[in-house]
Design a protein around this nucleic acid. Sequence first.
DNA 1: AGAATAGTGTCTGTTAGACATTATAGA
DNA 2: TCTATAATGTCTAACAGACACTATTCT
Lengths: 261, 261
Amino acid sequence: MSQDLPESSREPGFDLEDFPGVHMAVDVAVMTVGEPNEWGERQLMTLLVKRTGEFEPGTWVIPGRFVRYRERLKDAAKICLKEKVGITGVNPRQLNVLDEPDRDPRGWTMSVGHVVPVPFYVALKAVGESPMTRDLAVVTEKRIEFRSEQQTLPRSQQKILDYAVNYLRSRYASRPDPKGFLGEKFTLSELYEVHAAILGQKFWSRDAMRRNFLPFLEDTGEISKGSVGKPAVVYRHRERDPLTTPRRVQIPSSSQIATEY
Amino acid sequence: MSQDLPESSREPGFDLEDFPGVHMAVDVAVMTVGEPNEWGERQLMTLLVKRTGEFEPGTWVIPGRFVRYRERLKDAAKICLKEKVGITGVNPRQLNVLDEPDRDPRGWTMSVGHVVPVPFYVALKAVGESPMTRDLAVVTEKRIEFRSEQQTLPRSQQKILDYAVNYLRSRYASRPDPKGFLGEKFTLSELYEVHAAILGQKFWSRDAMRRNFLPFLEDTGEISKGSVGKPAVVYRHRERDPLTTPRRVQIPSSSQIATEY
DNA sequence: AGAATAGTGTCTGTTAGACATTATAGA
DNA sequence: TCTATAATGTCTAACAGACACTATTCT
């Protein structure tokens, strides 16, 4: 363990107490994809909470929380979700670190942005439990659209959302619904709507998606019901990846956090 | 500014002092690409420093440093490079946050990994100034090869290097030498060697690279000299990107930091 | 029957990869 | 001349996108 220390900490005369600590926080972008609208389009959304304290009450922000002594960031993010929006059983992923020293007038703080993709019904349930203090906002290219009220997110929170969107885009570029926005079973149309909501114009055509994703799926034997038109075959995810992997090898996604703004 | 706070910090009765601060550090992976070896291959390398203090002297680690009060992470990384390896004028990029609470037996610390790509001559100069306490190690797939001595890097430092490699791979997948490992002028062969060092088998063939990168380059009129075979045309980067951008739109790289290990 | 959606088959343009050919240097 | 490397041109297989056509449901 001790060999994991930064090199400087081992110089002669070094004292950890010479460096005051920073108050650490986490902010969590809970991302989901809504149901199709009247034109059959789905939209990427994020869960917001309303500030209820003495400071700027009524402001909508993504859930956040300070990190307790010796707490891990991922645990802090999980507890944050449990306490603020009643969501459990998720796995937050680190994004960028917000380190502007003047973020908090009361002291020196940093915050680590996180992202958590959840199925729509989970987000809906969270909002339903406390509709006055929780809401879903549509996330579009570099902007957020609140349901009714105007509002713009704090700049640093918008930055976290930008990274959250990029995270989802990299994950949804070449695999069918890896984060399970749809449930266990789904049709190819639903799959296309979800991927189109995340990737927009950058995604394949329906034809290309079918060709590329079908090897990852298996037929459940069921067919969709209740809608106009020919019923669609219902698929589920295959247990293991197909042996016929895509010809072109995937470039690993960047690990960078900070992008120039 | 104050609206950038995490939501929890604004609850009634909240006191920032209830949350003790964490000692913040930065670790910086200085990455470079070496000169071609006897088989014409170049290799990705990273700059290491030798611990000189009382603790584990002789251990090789990537440069690191604690963050001073209200200091920005990027500034801490820059100062770290200046003081430890004499490198200035660079722009460190954030990677992942190491938050294991037992990393430092003396107290609660976290460290933010950074990456800095530098031309080979810069790394060579840094080593040359202090050859006993600085060295270059070859970075291969998920492992590090030290020049002479054995050594394996501390686990958390290896993690930073993994992210640094992924960062470079995403950057070098579709643009010619964006971080300037080669100098201002270079031949297509040199360009291929650098990209192959970073991307390995995942990179294009020489033919495909030529077709895709040529629109980004312009002929200097010069030709290479001194080697066997037909002299190569010397290119430089074009001022602006070509109007004929690649047909297939690039999926933005992931913003995630933490990957499961 | 008509509209709407799902699924299949075919064609075309683009591109990566392979390879042959030519060009030009040093040994 | 021989060898090594650079540069160009051509061919092929793979694939994305487009579209025609069939299938199946609801109204």
